[in-house]
Simulated scan of single mutants.
Amino acid sequence: MTQLQFSLDMDVLKESVMNSNIETVIKSAIVLVLNEFMEKERDEYLQATSYERSTERRDYRNGYYERDLTMSIGKLTLKVPRTRNGEFSPSVFEKYARCDQAFVLSMLEMVVNGVSTRKVTHIVEQLCGENVSKSFVSSLTQKLDPIMNEWANRSLNTTYYPYVFVDAMYIKVREHQSVVSKAIYIATAITEDDKREILGLSVDHVESYESWSRFFQHLKSRGLQSPKLIISDAHQGLQKAIQREFIGTSWQRCNVHFKRNIFDKLPKKDSTEIRFMIKRVFEAITVEDIRKFKDELMEQFSGISKYEKALQILDEGFEDTIQYMNFPEPIRKHIRSTNSLERLNQEVRRRETVIRIFPNTQSAFRLVGAVLMEYQKTNYEKRKSLSK
């Protein structure tokens, strides 16, 4: 280990104390210490001090070059000693590279948590006293790309997912000098061990049959096997894509969305009784009761014009909305709606709202993917702590 016996230029340090503020004093002191540290490291590497003759000498001194080191107190300009063969490298920069990495990771975490690039830039300037461009912060976030791509393309063939949830949300992206709306597709699942997992995401131009088909084909290319049930809203293109890509898989229309569609068609006044009976239908425990209660409701209120549209929606979508009743009772409450995916979308939306408009599609994929990865990791850690 290098033993340091500092011989500092006290005149330089004194001048800093007399004529500068405390930050400059601290910077000057650190520069002097680090320069001396690197000088001693070079002596140790060469196995000879200045002007010393030694048979064990490994190389010769070759002056200095300047290099900046950014620390929490700001940018320091150091005199880095070098050797003729160029193989000597001081440990100062290697050591503080770990700090740099931690700093970069902190910046990435800020971005993932929804802090805008502008605010991140401001925080960096407050910490380091350096002007940092938005493009510099953006380039740092690209460090997430390899991690994101590996996660987004990981194999799905080692686990069977009997229940899959899919949904789309919309974001704003800048494209060709214009701001356009794009759809983000997200898929989650429940395993046979009742564990929730995020399967993947995609960013596409619009929510359509073609785009949903591409998303499903990507999941299948990664090894996703046909699930027993897919739960989603009633988007026609989505339904068609499910039928095309997953032959033999049942489709469960989100129970919550379905009831909301029915209630929206009911008059606000004088509809208490029918609302109560609709809730009664979907609170039934057996498939026999749920059909019985539905038939009773239709018989009692059919022919009443103000209920006609609501009853039509109920009748047409009823079978697709009770598919969960064909599965074991303990799992039913988890698969009858997309509520779990809606909560995940809200978490994404909370971060996305801060940014408002993504500079490009890749940045949107990067942020949403990072949020999903963090969400899954957090839930995994919670389950692990509860199981102890």
Rank of each mutant, 00 (worst) to 15 (best):
S135A: 15
K143M: 09
S181C: 02
T158H: 10
I184Q: 01
V180K: 11
M107H: 00
N149Y: 13
T117L: 14
Q177I: 01
Q126W: 07
M169C: 12
V104K: 15
Q177F: 06
T117Y: 14
E150M: 08
V111G: 04
Y161F: 13
L108S: 04
E197C: 06
K134P: 05
S178C: 02
Y163C: 02
V137S: 08
D193N: 11
K143P: 00
D194T: 02
V124K: 03
W151F: 12
L140W: 10
L140R: 09
R196N: 06
E125F: 07
F136W: 12
R174C: 06
V180F: 01
A102F: 13
N157A: 12
S181M: 00
Y185V: 04
V164M: 00
N149M: 13
S178E: 11
Y161Q: 02
N149L: 13
K182H: 08
E175K: 00
N153A: 06
N113I: 12
E130K: 14
L105K: 05
V120N: 03
V137K: 08
R174F: 05
S138G: 15
T158V: 08
A183E: 03
S106K: 08
K195A: 00
A187V: 02
M107Y: 00
K143T: 05
V124S: 12
Y185W: 02
Y160V: 11
S116P: 10
D193T: 06
E197G: 02
V132P: 05
E130L: 14
S106T: 10
E150R: 13
N153F: 02
W151V: 09
K172W: 03
D100T: 15
S106F: 05
A183L: 06
K134V: 07
F103H: 12
S139K: 13
R154K: 13
H176G: 02
C128V: 15
A102R: 15
V115R: 07
H122D: 13
N131V: 15
P162G: 03
K182L: 06
T158Q: 12
L144Q: 07
V180C: 04
K195M: 01
S135E: 13
N131R: 15
V164G: 00
A183F: 04
F136G: 09
S139Q: 14
V104M: 12
T158N: 08
K182N: 10
C128K: 13
F165V: 01
